[in-house]
Simulated assay, not measured.
Amino acid sequence: MKRRNIWRGLFVFALFALVLTGCSGHESLNVLDPSGSAGEKQLDLIKLSFLIMLGVFAVVITIYIYVLIRFRKRKGVDVMPKQTHGNTKLEIIWTVIPIILLGILAVPTVTTTFDLTKIAQDEEVVNVKVTGYQYWWEFEYPELGIKTAQELHIPVGKKINFEIHGKDVLHSFWIPALGGKVDVIPGRVTNVILDANKPGDYQGKCAELCGAGHALMDFKVKAHSAEDFDKWVTQMQAPPAELTTDSEKRGEEVFQQNCLGCHAGINQSVPGPDLSKFGTRDTIAGMLKNNPENLKKWLHDPQAIKAGANMPKIDYLEEKDLDALVDYLESRK
């Protein structure tokens, strides 16, 4: 019976481990497969800490098993093992060893932390101002005159200096494939330097519980080759495309009447993201695929999609005006 219970327990453990293998999610969320120099250095620290913990576990479990076997209760033997309580030499040993292990981990951790904030004087850097809101992210490129939301574009092989601001509550800026988490605190500016060593799409997240919509406060990171990044910059700096259809022109009127107060554009201090290049984005609110059908759902009831979102419902428009507004926003490229 005991043997059967052991095998049953092993089966349950193996099944549980198999289920957990599906928790890694998208490849871009895997901190164990970094795509940037900061992530690679932090992975080295993860490996070092894991080896230290594995060594401690091996020693402790070896002593534990030895004691279980050596001092097990045996028939006819009732001898109390030698007591070591108050042994100064032993207490010094198991106090000094953890200090040494913490020192081995602390020195590279501190040096790496400072190293990740350094930029060579002759190194070309892209500066990005990041602002965290409930529940979306704004990305501004001061030198390039570009402001966008929910989609961060960076060139491969260049350091990106993120200047991070908080607008309302605590957030945490995190791109798992590129580097570790950074606190976003209202009234305080924090900086982090990251880069990507290969083109691709990466997932960004808020890693601080910030309200009802926290789980959906995602953003996309698009790492481009230098040539493709320059093309994106040119596209973003160019004036929006001219309106070509009556529906788009009507949509502009609807936008000005209903949306302009919160989405005035790059040079205005407004509570909503800049939508002047909305049609270039792959997603709506950082989570829905950008297409007319999803955009209509979002405009009609944002809170039904992202709980706690500050954007009000636009459920009072006539169907033709809502369609016109959608056409106008999708034309902003």
Rank of each mutant, 00 (worst) to 15 (best):
F219T: 02
F219L: 05
K220V: 07
K220W: 04
V221W: 03
V221Q: 04
A223N: 10
A223Q: 09
A226E: 13
A226H: 07
E227P: 03
E227A: 14
D228P: 00
D228I: 00
D230G: 04
D230H: 13
W232F: 15
V233F: 05
V233Q: 03
V233M: 06
V233L: 02
T234K: 15
T234N: 15
M236E: 13
Q237E: 05
A238K: 15
A238N: 14
P240C: 07
P240N: 10
P240T: 12
A241M: 10
L243H: 09
T244W: 02
T244L: 12
D246C: 00
S247W: 05
E248R: 11
E248A: 12
K249H: 01
K249M: 09
K249R: 14
R250P: 00
G251M: 04
E252V: 02
E252S: 07
E253G: 05
E253S: 13
V254L: 06
V254I: 14
F255E: 00
F255Q: 04
Q257R: 12
N258L: 05
N258A: 08
C259M: 08
C259K: 07
C259R: 09
C259Y: 10
G261Q: 09
G261A: 10
C262R: 11
H263A: 03
H263R: 01
H263T: 05
H263L: 01
H263D: 05
A264L: 00
A264M: 01
A264Q: 00
A264K: 01
G265A: 10
G265P: 07
G265D: 05
Q268M: 10
S269H: 11
V270D: 07
V270E: 05
V270A: 14
V270W: 00
P271Q: 08
G272F: 04
G272I: 06
G272D: 06
P273W: 12
P273G: 12
D274N: 15
D274I: 09
D274Q: 09
L275V: 13
L275N: 10
L275F: 13
K277N: 07
F278Y: 15
G279K: 01
